[in-house]
């Protein structure tokens, strides 16, 4: 197993797409940071009268509110945005062996299917963790550019991104299932995108509207739950005036932030089921390559 992991990680770090995804994330962070700079201005104008401060003072005060945690959570606050980012990369990475036929070579090794399943999920998870690490690093840089001192609340960030990673893990298991079933990159990317785009939320909403179930299924939509995670509910609780202004939060604005107790069982439950189905599919579906 260790050998397979070494191979998967080696390939991950030699995948250009991974670095491009990180650069893309940093680029988007730069755009959002610029937008935030001007949004702070708008925020200050709206709130200035209430505080009795001058416009310039209010803008300065507003910009002080932008810290590492807030920047890091910007991306994740946009429902499914970063998950989509990560899932598109992971779909290509995970399905590559099947698509290219490299999987045939691996099948000559004992227990190749099981090792593939574990190796791909582990490498994708590591990619996710590194990706979020880059997001945090970008947040530190942007915080510095805002003229604020970057203070990193490790438990807060770890809890926040750990929960997002749990959702990613379930999405990666979905990708391994899609790859095992359809054995093409296109299918894995399409399935990943549909779920990361939170199409599931629409389907759940439809089921809820029909009233088919005695409870609201929307409450259990994994990507929806992840999108409603609020970084400030972990650790330092503070009023989150900026988040709702800057992120809009769309359809989630009227919903309470997700708690770990809501997201973790859904994510890990889905991961377990999807991983089991992936394993069964790998074992019993012929490899067509």
């Amino acid at each position: 197993m260790i050998n397979t992991l070494r191979m998967d990680f080696r390939r991950l770090f030699k995948t250009r797409g991974f670095y491009l995804a990180c650069l893309w994330a940093l680029g988007i962070m730069a755009i959002m940071a610029t937008a935030s700079w001007f949004l702070a201005d708008e925020f200050a104008r709206e709130a200035g009268g209430l505080a009795g401060l001058s416009g310039g003072q209010m803008v300065a005060e507003a910009r002080k509110l932008f810290n590492v945690s807030r920047f890091a959570s910007f991306f994740m606050g946009a429902p499914s945005f970063m998950h989509l980012f990560l899932v598109v990369f992971a779909a290509g990475y995970i399905s590559r062996d099947h698509q290219s036929g490299y999987f045939k070579n691996l099948l000559a090794l004992p227990g190749a299917r099981e090792k593939w399943l574990v190796g791909k999920q582990a490498a994708a998870l590591a990619a996710g963790a590194l990706f979020y690490g880059v997001v945090i690093l970008g947040s530190v840089v942007v915080t510095l550019l805002f003229g604020n001192t970057p203070r990193i609340d490790v438990p807060q960030l770890a809890a926040f991104f750990g929960l997002h990673l749990s959702a990613d893990l379930a999405l990666f298991a979905l990708l391994t299932l899609a790859t095992a079933l359809f054995q093409t990159r296109t299918a894995a990317v399409m399935v990943g995108m549909v779920f990361a785009f939170n199409m599931q939320a629409l389907i759940y909403l439809l089921i809820d509207q029909i009233g088919f179930l005695p409870f609201d299924l929307s409450e259990y939509g994994m990507v929806g739950l992840a999108g409603r995670l609020d970084i400030f509910t972990f650790g330092q609780a503070q009023p989150d005036l900026l988040s709702s202004m800057m992120m809009g939060r769309g359809g989630f604005s009227n919903m309470a932030p997700t708690t770990p107790g809501q997201l973790l069982p859904v994510s890990l439950g889905l991961w377990a089921v999807l991983t089991f189905l992936s394993w069964i599919t790998l074992r019993y579906r012929d490899y067509r390559g």
């Binding site: 390939r11 290219s100 045939k104």
Partner: peptide, 19 residues
């Protein structure tokens, strides 16, 4: 199934490699 039991090497149909 999936555990050859001996050291095996295979090239079946087209070669599989990362292009």
């Amino acid at each position: 199934y999936g555990s050859p039991g001996i050291a095996l090497g295979a090239l079946v149909e087209s070669p599989g490699f990362y292009p």
